[in-house]
């Protein structure tokens, strides 16, 4: 069995799960919808001459402040790729979980985990390639001629947002290997990335919080939107988040390898 076969099987398996489709829809439609709302607000503020009403006046920032909703979709994608393996069927239909099928088909456990990571990364990358350019076009179309000159570094921030989603999805995948159940990681990671960021709260207590994976990663795309002073530089932040991701995946691999299925 080749790694290619394992990846092809995982892509087919993940893509045919209804939860994956829901997560992809959130990743794609969520940021577009929020961008739409943001951009309309920016246009109204600019046209009425009261730009102090919005936190930003750039259509670009209308897009990047919509990134967290896409993060929610990425989290769900990463979680269900693993939690779907452990969903127990009811006793009425004989019980059982998909993980036994997966590991009898592909006994190389690190291969399974790597194939899952590749699959999730591909899905998130494709979603990001569609949704970020589409959102940027939408925002500049709505704000139109009223917009201030575009800030520099839009491309690198767009790439940064995509990488942020990708790494977040992989972190979610790794964490779900530890829990073998999707509920806790989904709640914790979704709340942290959309409602109340624990890391942002911690940043008020210690500057070390900027090295936490989400805050470090946000510096890749947030620009001035990041509400604290000593944020890492974008590339540094990206490397810090990637290091967290690699570490968590390695730990997940070690656990997955040793544990009874």
């Amino acid at each position: 069995m080749t790694f290619f076969d394992a990846v092809a099987a995982e892509i087919r398996k993940t893509a045919t799960l209804p939860a994956t489709m829901v997560a992809l829809a959130v990743t794609v439609l969520g940021p577009v919808a929020i961008t739409l709302i943001n951009a309309i607000g920016v246009r109204a503020a600019l046209r009425s001459g009261r730009s102090e009403l919005t936190a930003y006046t750039s259509p670009v920032d209308a897009v990047f402040s919509a990134v967290p909703i896409g993060t929610v979709g990425a989290v769900v994608l990463g979680v269900v790729a693993v939690s779907g393996e452990y969903t127990a069927n009811s006793a009425r239909i004989g019980g059982g979980r998909q993980i036994t099928t997966t590991l009898t088909a592909i006994p190389n456990r690190l291969g399974v985990l790597a194939a899952k990571a590749v699959t999730v990364a591909l899905l998130v990358a494709v979603a990001a390639l569609v949704v970020i350019p589409a959102s940027l076009a939408l925002a500049s179309g709505i704000v139109g001629a009223d917009a201030p000159p575009a800030p520099e570094g839009v491309l690198s921030r767009a790439v940064g947002a995509g990488i942020y989603w990708l790494l977040t999805a992989l972190i979610a995948l790794a964490v779900t290997v530890f829990t073998r159940n999707g509920i806790v990681p989904i709640i914790v990671l979704v709340v942290n990335s959309s409602l109340v960021s624990v890391s942002v709260l911690l940043s008020h207590l210690t500057p070390l919080a900027r090295f936490l994976p989400d805050l470090a990663g946000m510096s890749m795309f947030a620009g001035d939107l990041l509400a604290f002073d000593d944020a890492l530089a974008p590339v540094t932040g990206g490397l810090v988040m990637a290091t967290w991701t690699a570490g968590l995946l390695a730990l997940a691999g070690a656990v997955f390898l040793r544990r009874d299925a």
Binding site: D5, A8, T16, I93, G94, T101, T104, A105
Partner: peptide
């Protein structure tokens, strides 16, 4: 391994929200 040893443990071994056909299809692909 599926070409050497075919196995069945508890139940179907398929995720409940999958169709029978796509369960077998990903297995075949692997």
């Amino acid at each position: 391994p599926l070409r050497t040893v075919g196995s069945m443990l508890e139940g179907s071994g398929a995720h409940r929200s999958r169709t029978a056909r796509n369960h077998l299809t990903w297995m075949a692909r692997s």
